[in-house]
Amino acid sequence: MTLRLDALGQRYGDHPVLHDITLTVPDGQLLCVVGPSGCGKSTLLRTVAGLQPAREGTITLDDAPVTGVPDHLAVVFQDYGRSLFPWLTVRDNVALPLRRRGLARAARRAEADRILERVGLDGTARRHPWQLSGGMQQRVAIARALVCRPSLLLMDEPFGSLDAQTREDLEDLLLEVHRTDATTIVFVTHDIDESVYVGDRVVVLSPGPASRVVLDLPVELPGKRDQIGTRRLPEFVALRSEVGRVVRGA
């Protein structure tokens, strides 16, 4: 699904947050959006998700303007503890989006279990989210996002509060999902290394107010990405320092 932002602007009252954002995310691309805290990354995702109307400009998905929450969209939020429903089991959390597809109960459960296995959570279906570690909870949130096979996946600093090892595991899970499903993904992070490791392309927003796009960089790295080899490549190091320079405003 192709996402197109055209002169998008957003504000809270008199406080401008985003200004004149023009971007095209082609079908199947994994776009990373980087920027300092408070520059409007979450606001950008919320606007694309149709959770708040754009104040200026337009957003289109496959040429259809976004008004309200689009179909085939899924979102993963940073705060898994709040985004999951603690009163539902892991399986029921994951199966929740399937209700609107009109599947029977047994089919919903089977589908949820299948996706849980895919994200490495087999055997946790009947537990409750708060009985799992942070990394596993975020896997549940990812499973809930994937279960409806979205064509656009938005992720708002999804790994920001996880420890380094867990974060690397989940980055690789994301890459695997992206390789097999070819979903269009917008991945927000404030971690420069992560953006270069995960993204097909990195976009940097300037510090607010009225953030703009200050860098738009394709990420071309040889071979399949892996946590140890890729981060040592000279291409990786060069891209990372370029993004870092722009983020720090040099």
């Binding site: 490495g120 959570l121 009985q131 570690s133 942070g134 990394g135 596993m136 420890d163 090892q165 867990t166």
Partner: peptide, 12 residues
């Protein structure tokens, strides 16, 4: 399964 350090919650 990833390293589950940190925030494991148990019912009180």
């Amino acid at each position: 399964m990833s390293g589950g350090r940190g925030t494991v919650g148990h019912p009180q």
